[in-house]
Design a protein around this nucleic acid. Sequence first.
DNA 1: CGGGTTTTTACAAGATTTTTACAACTTGCG
DNA 2: CGCAAGTTGTAAAAATCTTGTAAAAACCCG
Lengths: 119, 119
Amino acid sequence: MIPQGAYRDEHFIVDFEHQRAYLDNKAMVLTRKEFELLATLAGNAGDIVPRDILLQNIWGYSPEIRTRTMDVHIRRLRKKLAGYGESYIETIFGVGYRFQPYRAPRQISSPLYALASVA
Amino acid sequence: MIPQGAYRDEHFIVDFEHQRAYLDNKAMVLTRKEFELLATLAGNAGDIVPRDILLQNIWGYSPEIRTRTMDVHIRRLRKKLAGYGESYIETIFGVGYRFQPYRAPRQISSPLYALASVA
DNA sequence: CGGGTTTTTACAAGATTTTTACAACTTGCG
DNA sequence: CGCAAGTTGTAAAAATCTTGTAAAAACCCG
């Protein structure tokens, strides 16, 4: 589930091997569960990871167990990913979560184009 | 595990070969176990050394043995490293300990370097 | 023996994780 | 639309787990 090597984008790095993550080149302080969760999501960046799977893989819970612990962990991660938090960890309602690689704000070449999307 | 040669920073020196350590140029008085522990940590300065590994390498204990003896030794070392004690030996909760060289650039200076070895 | 060293014991303190209780949000349907 | 059922978000408390510590006991080894 958690791949070898590393995940990396413009602001965020996960070094799976050394169990560390960096945000804008600063080491994040993460607990074990926080790291596992973040690493699992980032390791599957772009793909939805279902709640069932996360609960099974990280907590060893079977799907019928009712708990909010994962949501609490997600919240703490979003907090620690400050600023980018909302855009990195996306909620897929009724399914799970998806880690979205950072996308640089695109330079808009034509002001008309920008206006078009607002209108 | 304990390397040849010496560890050295601005205040602290470990001479692995002669099994001696110096704090601000004064020879420390260390028992054998204390030296082994300190040398192991300093010899891996900057890296986390897991409790399991320390227990195995220094005490020959397997991971499931429950004992506080290592914690007691850590405490004595911190005491003897007076003043610098807290900053030298860092606790990594749930994992182990890490010896941080004096005034080392906070954490890992370049995550990119760390990743190079992974890539 | 005897004195230093090491380990155990028994809690205290601290950190992490989970639960609880409820608020806020999404979605489907009449 | 408007609402009900189900899902996710959140703060705070509780539970659990890990580490720190003092003191005493056990262990060595001359």
